[in-house]
Amino acid sequence: MRLAALQADFGRWLRAECPDAATRLGGGAGLDVYLNNYRSQLVAALQSSFPQLQRWLGETAFLAAAARHVEASPPSAWTLDAYGEDFPATIAALYPDDPECAELARIEWALAAAFTTPDLAPLSAESLGEVQWETARFAFMPTLAMLPVTSNAAALWQSLVDGTVPPAVQRLPAPGAVLLWRDGFNPSFRTIEQAEATAILQLEAGMQFGALCTALADAHGEAGSAAIVGGWLGAWLRDGLLAALR
């Protein structure tokens, strides 16, 4: 058997326990060792990436979800650390009526991803002294992540980390978002309302700051919109979410 055929067969054995492939590989106890190593390592990677989700679901349910994911989603990334990227989608499929489960998983994954993002200096408040606000365009940190949420999953995650009794699951009055970033070496997050999430997306798409204020003034008046946008901008600067003027 050529090397490529052997490796294709080994892959079939690990992914699907294909008996024909096992026969061609010569069978034996060694194949079971590799199969066990493969599966147990992937499950361990998911346990390592989603400790709070495991607490929330309970070990039995988590391991069942992990086994389902290992069977359906063989790894393709160069690093085992990336294996959990699609696990929130598996959780969403397994718990369609409990969106907080997948949202908890997405938050946990995004926080872990933020842990190793590039070391970049954010825009400082001092550098905004001469800015022409009407035409200013902002770039957010490339390491900023924003996840849509419909539940209080962020509060659930925090209580699980803190070891306190989690609050009751709640649907948000309106869909919102969770902002996630790295603050120094520590991942950080906060929940925001849809209006702020929309503003961030608009600015990211190149909208001028003045145009954002004008758009909000239609609904909130000039003074109201200035207060709202000023509050957002202050928080973005405080949290180090802005990368540059562009």
Partner: peptide, 9 residues
């Protein structure tokens, strides 16, 4: 690894 499959073993 073989093709798109990474065994991580």
């Amino acid at each position: 690894r073989f093709g798109d499959f990474q065994s991580h073993d």
